[in-house]
Design a protein around this nucleic acid. Structure first.
Length: 274
DNA sequence: CCTCTATGGCGAA
DNA sequence: TCGCCCTAGAGGC
């Protein structure tokens, strides 16, 4: 689930559900009891996201900081009114509720309550986020064009730009026909600007739909006479997790390799640009 | 039952 | 670069 679009979508949903509402916050398994106690009974001011970080401001002036990591999930459901039916299921690390909506947090990498200064420190370490209106792609370009690391690694570095994960990096490189191993300092400036423009196009779609759909209309299953993608790892994609399958554009076998500790996918035929 | 995997990131070596 | 943390679902035996 969690690339930047997931967190922005979640922030929107939390803001809709809880802004202006007094909330109960509990840590059913006790792991985050300290954080829950600081939030319990407070009124939510606003929820927001920066990169893959979620921030929920409350009326004490403190902020709930959540990072979902690789496996974390934060689900919102309508309270049924039946306490037995609403009991936490699974490893619920934190539950927030106003009696109308229940938010359950599972498997987070971070769940803590921070001061405004601590929040600033975190945000200050992040590169520009394509989902934020204040984001400046030049901030990322300054680092990219000085680095010898491959562009596929730089895209995943949250200090260079934030919110991009393992699906978006493979997909945006494919869509722009870029060689994933091209070093940042040999990447054309126009290629970077194309990547950024594409991310600012793709990621808001992810926020709206909740899944990562990257396939252009002319390559969609109906247009190509193939079966729609049937798995839980996003929507229609060109290369992500399609190792050894045929490229939707040229038919070549999709390649995979570990790059920067994560599985990268690309088409060696389509992606030759720098 | 078991093992493996995952849209992430940290710290040790 | 590697091990490790966290949860849940899938697949193998």
């Amino acid at each position: 689930m969690p690339e930047g679009h997931t967190l922005h979508r979640l922030a929107n949903a939390l803001d809709d559900a809880f802004a202006g509402r007094q909330v109960a916050v509990a840590s059913p398994q006790g792991r985050f009891a300290e954080a829950a106690a600081l939030l319990h009974g407070r009124t939510v001011d606003a929820a927001s996201a920066h990169g893959k970080h979620l921030f929920v401001d409350v009326d004490s002036g403190l902020t709930w900081h959540v990072h979902l990591g690789l496996i974390g999930k934060f689900t919102l459901t309508a309270a049924s009114g039946d306490p037995a039916a609403d009991l936490p299921r699974g490893e619920v690390r934190a539950r927030i509720s106003d009696g109308v909506t229940i938010g359950d947090l599972r498997g987070p990498a971070a769940c803590e309550v921070l001061t405004a200064g601590e929040v600033s420190d975190i945000v200050g370490r992040l590169g520009p986020d394509p989902l934020r209106a204040d984001a400046d792609p030049e901030m990322a370009w300054v680092r990219i064009h000085r680095s010898s690391r491959p562009i596929a690694a730089l895209l995943m570095d949250q200090a260079v730009l934030s919110g991009i994960g393992n699906v978006y990096r493979s997909e945006v490189l494919f869509r722009n026909r870029l060689n994933p191993r091209r070093p940042g300092n040999r990447l054309a400036r126009r290629s970077w600007l194309a990547i950024w423009a594409d991310l600012t196009y793709l990621m808001p779609i992810g926020v709206r739909t909740g899944s990562i759909d990257t396939v252009r209309p002319e390559h969609e299953p109906a247009a190509m006479g193939r079966e729609p993608r049937q798995d839980d790892h996003g929507g229609e994609v060109y290369v992500y997790r399609r190792a050894n399958q045929a490229c939707h554009v040229c038919g070549s076998r999709i390649r995979t390799a570990v790059l920067d500790g994560r599985n990268l996918f690309w088409c060696g035929n389509c992606q030759r640009r720098g």
